[in-house]
Design a protein around this nucleic acid. Structure first.
Length: 575
DNA sequence: CAGTGAGCGAGCTTCCGCTTGACTT
């Protein structure tokens, strides 16, 4: 018998079906060993050596017992954990526990072809990749165990610091400070209405050759400007019409489905993950902890068949749509989140049904034809030669006519997450038309109405759990399996509170952030620290940088700063 | 003699990332 070991028990039956009688397939249920939670740092630093003390995970005892007994009966052991850094490390730990030579295989999809192709070319465990994971693990332990104690001088409630949670907290705290420091400016803009047809409005964007900005703050000045403008000549300054392609959004990843479920369904990331887990276990969707937008060719073919069946030919692109990976830190061990059986309509209810519909529509949309819009921009001069030979005021109107809705035919549901929250592009994806005449430059016209409109600058918005996760993902901080847990930590420890779904740093969170920024400037508390760490880890994985030197240098950097912040003793030497 | 404080040691707590199921309410 040959034993194949994977991480998830949800894969074992399917893989066994591809392999036949000579094989057993078993699951590790994720990691099986780790640094111990009690007993100090559990990493020795001696003469440039780094010696982590790993112990079997309590929660993994059943899996370890099963793997051990199956391994005893196996003539060959094939470690088929996920094809990424953590998966390589899990494979290495399993081999260490089993105490036997094992071979490594990597499944890039759970299909008969992919599984059989992978088994045809087993390899050794990639020790460089394992070492990159050890470096990541030990660094996180060093930061957590050396820095957390220094916080306690702020009080018993200031419990924890880490490479991920402290930066998540800092983002919320920094935003809170921006809001506190924000000074609202009330100002006016001028809106001109023209009869058309079709009737349209234009907003004053330039005055005396400069952008208008927020310079009209006095209502009396606004009134006078309106009165003056109404007495002037008005002419079309420029008119242009562009055809703009509106490409479909990529299929969901963990972070983007959390974002969409938050905006559209008002679900928090923890609830979304719970529903996704149940959809996944019922076989309705692919794996839900992923940072990849890749799709299996079979899935794309199924989507194209449905699009061809349900929509006119123009909605099916000639070639499948390929979505580029936007996230450079993606580890690509899984594919995007999508329905597994497009042809079936699963019987679901409540929020589960809503979430499934969101995933279903987003997946179909991602393989549909781009939309096409005609975007018209009109610049209209008020008093065309009154300022240094140029126009005194320039009013601008923008119009959009949907030429072809394309993927947007599926409705706003599938697009909600892609919309920017603010700014003038907010309705770009909505397939509604706002027509504008393409007038001849130089032609005269006059407004049927001109009014001053009161506006005010707005403070930046607070983060929601989902938008904070989106930000963390964009910065490469945290992983799909941890996003919801990060939110739980900063909320449950009251570093942050949630009010009407908006996150607000507490006094505790603000003072912790101030302390960490003061004492650990340039280190883990910086937004780009993880990105720099990942680059160094890639170098380790390529075999170009020894992991122990990297970790030793970083650990001593943290140690010096932690001691300056009040840490007693030297845990790197004393264990 | 009562109260205070220094010094010592024991115990508790903390990181990130991978995966679910076996508990109790």
């Amino acid at each position: 018998m040959r034993l194949v070991i994977v991480e998830s028990p949800n894969k074992t039956a399917k893989i066994k079906g591809f392999l036949g009688p000579g094989y057993q397939v078993a699951a590790s249920f994720g990691h099986v060993r780790d640094l111990p939670i009690n007993g100090g740092l559990a990493v020795g630093f001696h003469d440039g050596r780094v010696e982590p003390r790993y112990v079997p995970l309590e929660k993994a005892s059943r899996a370890i017992a099963q793997l051990t007994s199956l391994a005893a009966k196996a003539e060959e052991i094939l470690l088929a954990t996920d094809p990424d850094r953590e998966g390589e490390a899990i494979a290495w730990h399993i081999a260490q526990i089993l105490g036997r030579p094992c071979r490594r295989v990597a499944f890039h999809a759970i299909t008969k072809n992919a599984v059989q192709a992978a088994l045809a070319k087993p390899r050794d465990i990639d020790q460089h990749l394992v070492d990159a994971q050890q470096a990541r693990r030990v660094l996180d332990r060093v930061v957590g165990w050396l820095v957390s104690p220094t916080l306690r001088r702020l009080g018993k409630e200031a419990k924890s610091a880490g490479r991920v949670q402290s930066v998540a907290l800092r983002l919320v705290a920094d935003r809170e400070r921006e809001i506190q420091a924000f000074n609202k400016v009330d100002y006016f803009t001028l809106i001109a209405t023209f009869a058309g047809p079709p009737k349209f409005q234009a907003e004053l964007i330039r005055w005396k050759g400069e952008p208008l900005g927020q310079r009209i703050t006095d209502p009396a000045i606004a009134e006078k400007t309106v009165a003056w403008c109404l007495k002037q000549e008005w002419r079309v300054l420029a008119a242009k019409r562009l055809e703009v392609a509106k490409n479909p959004p990529p299929p969901f990843t963990t972070a983007t489905v959390q974002q969409a479920a938050s905006v559209k369904l008002k679900l928090d990331p923890a609830m979304t993950m719970k529903l996704l887990q149940s959809l996944f276990e019922a076989g309705h969707i692919t794996y839900h902890r992923t940072d990849s937008v890749a799709l299996e060719p079979e899935a794309i073919a199924a989507a194209r068949a449905i699009i061809a069946r349900d929509h006119p030919p123009a909605y099916l692109p000639a070639q499948p749509v390929v979505h580029g990976q936007k996230n450079a830190n993606a580890q690509e061990a899984h594919e995007a989140i999508r329905p597994t059986h497009l042809e079936e309509q699963p019987a679901l209810g409540g929020a589960e049904a809503d979430l499934y519909r969101l995933i279903h529509d987003r997946f179909l949309a991602c393989q549909m034809a781009p939309g096409r819009d005609a975007v018209t921009t009109l610049d209209i001069a008020c008093a065309p030669t009154a300022h240094a030979g140029g126009p005194m005021g320039v009013f601008q109107a923008k119009g959009v006519v949907v030429l072809f809705d394309g993927w947007r035919k599926l409705g706003a549901d599938a697009t909600e997450e892609a919309k920017p929250k603010k700014g003038k592009n907010a309705d770009e994806d909505a397939p509604t038309s706002k027509p504008l005449p393409l007038l001849e430059p130089g032609s005269a016209l006059s407004p049927s109405d001109l009014t001053g409109k009161r506006k005010a600058t707005k403070p930046p918005p607070r983060y929601t759990q989902a938008s904070l996760i989106k930000k963390l993902e964009a910065e490469g901080i945290g992983r799909p399996s941890t996003y919801a847990a990060i939110m739980k930590v900063i909320l449950e420890r009251a570093y942050v509170i949630e009010e009407k779904r908006m996150l607000q740093a507490t006094e505790l969170g603000l003072s912790m952030t101030d302390f960490l920024v003061h004492h650990f400037a340039g280190d883990f508390i910086e937004r780009d620290y993880t990105r720099r760490m990942e680059e160094a880890l890639d170098s380790v994985a390529r075999g170009e940088t020894p992991w122990e030197g990297l970790v030793t240098r970083a650990a001593h950097g943290v140690l010096a700063k932690a001691q300056a912040a009040g840490l007693r003793g030297n845990p790197l030497v004393d264990g």
